[in-house]
C-alpha cells in the first residue's frame, strides 16, 4: 500500500475548491477517510464522487453548528486524526483607510474566529479518540502573515493572528500531553480558481498573470498539489516532532529581496 495515512480520519474546512479540494484529494489518495465542509454543494458532490469523501454544508464561523458537525464526522468515521483549518476569505476587505466595519467583521469571522473554532473543536474530538488522544492540526495562514498587503488589511491581520493561534494551541496541547500537534502553513500565491478568476477579469489577463508569476523568485505561482503535499506531510506521523512551526511554501518569496 502506498498510502501514508491509512486508518486516519481527516476534516478539511472550505474543501470544495482550491487548496482545500486539492488537500481532500491528496489525503484521500494517501488512504485517509476525509470529511470536508463548505457551501458550494455542487462542487462538493463531484468531489465526493471522485474521492469517496463526505461533505457537510457548514460555515466555519457558525459556532453553534460545530458540535453537530463533529458529531457527523465521528458518526461517519468514529474518530478524528487530522484537521485542516483551511477556509478563508478576503471578501469585503480593503486598505486600513477604506475598510468598512462589515467587511472587517466578515473577514475576522471567517479567517480568525473560524480557525479558532476549527482548532478548538478538533482538539476536543482528538482528545477523545479511541485508543488514545492524538492528532495533527494544520492552519492555513499565508505569506501575507509576514508580508502584509496594503490593500487587504484584515486579511493580513487575521493571517498573522492564526500563526499565533497555532503556536498557542501547540504549546497548550504539548503541555497537556495530548499528543496533538498544531502547525501553520504560509503559502505564497497559489493558482486557485479564485486567482484565475481575478486574472481572467483583468483588461490584459496575460500581463496580470506575468505580474503574479513574477512575485516569486521562482517565476511562477504554486500549484494546488504542491500545497497539498505539505499538508500531507504535516498530517502524517512523519512530522511527529513538528509542532508550533510556521512553514513557508512560497518559492522563496519571503526569503529576502530579489536584488538586481
Amino acid at each position: 500500500m502506498a498510502g501514508r495515512l491509512e486508518g486516519k480520519v481527516a476534516l478539511v474546512t472550505g474543501g470544495t475548491t482550491g487548496i482545500g479540494a486539492a488537500s481532500v484529494r491528496r489525503l484521500a489518495a494517501e488512504g485517509a477517510k476525509v470529511f470536508f465542509t463548505g457551501s458550494k454543494e455542487e462542487a462538493a458532490r463531484a468531489l465526493c464522487e471522485e474521492t469517496g469523501a463526505r461533505f457537510a454544508a457548514h460555515r466555519v464561523q457558525d459556532a453553534a453548528g460545530w458540535p453537530g458537525l463533529i458529531d457527523q464526522v465521528l458518526g461517519a468515521f468514529g474518530r478524528l486524526d487530522i484537521a485542516f483549518a483551511n477556509a478563508g476569505t478576503e471578501s469585503g476587505d480593503a486598505s486600513i483607510e477604506d475598510v468598512g466595519i462589515d467587511g472587517w467583521n466578515n473577514v475576522v469571522a471567517v479567517n480568525q474566529t473560524g480557525v479558532m473554532l476549527t482548532v478548538q473543536h478538533a482538539i476536543r474530538a482528538m482528545k477523545a479518540n479511541p485508543f488514545g488522544s492524538g492528532g495533527s492540526i494544520i492552519v492555513n495562514s499565508s505569506m501575507n502573515a509576514t508580508r502584509p498587503l496594503g490593500n487587504y488589511v484584515t486579511y493580513s491581520v487575521t493571517k498573522a493572528a492564526v500563526c499565533a493561534l497555532a503556536k498557542s494551541a501547540a504549546v497548550h496541547c504539548g503541555q497537556k500531553g495530548y499528543n496533538i500537534r498544531v502547525n501553520a502553513i504560509l503559502p505564497g500565491v497559489v493558482e486557485t480558481e479564485l486567482i484565475m478568476g481575478i486574472l481572467a477579469a483583468q483588461a490584459d489577463p496575460d500581463a496580470a498573470r506575468a505580474m503574479y508569476n513574477a512575485m516569486s523568485p521562482m517565476g511562477r505561482m504554486a500549484k494546488l498539489e504542491e500545497i497539498a503535499g505539505l499538508v500531507a506531510y504535516l498530517a502524517s506521523d512523519e512530522a511527529a516532532f513538528v509542532s508550533g512551526a510556521e512553514l513557508a511554501i512560497d518559492g522563496a518569496t519571503t526569503a529576502g529581496m530579489m536584488g538586481v
Partner: peptide, 9 residues
C-alpha cells in the same frame, strides 16, 4: 517532489 514549491524556507 512533494516540496517542489518550497525553497528558501
Amino acid at each position: 517532489e512533494d516540496s517542489s514549491y518550497m525553497t528558501g524556507a
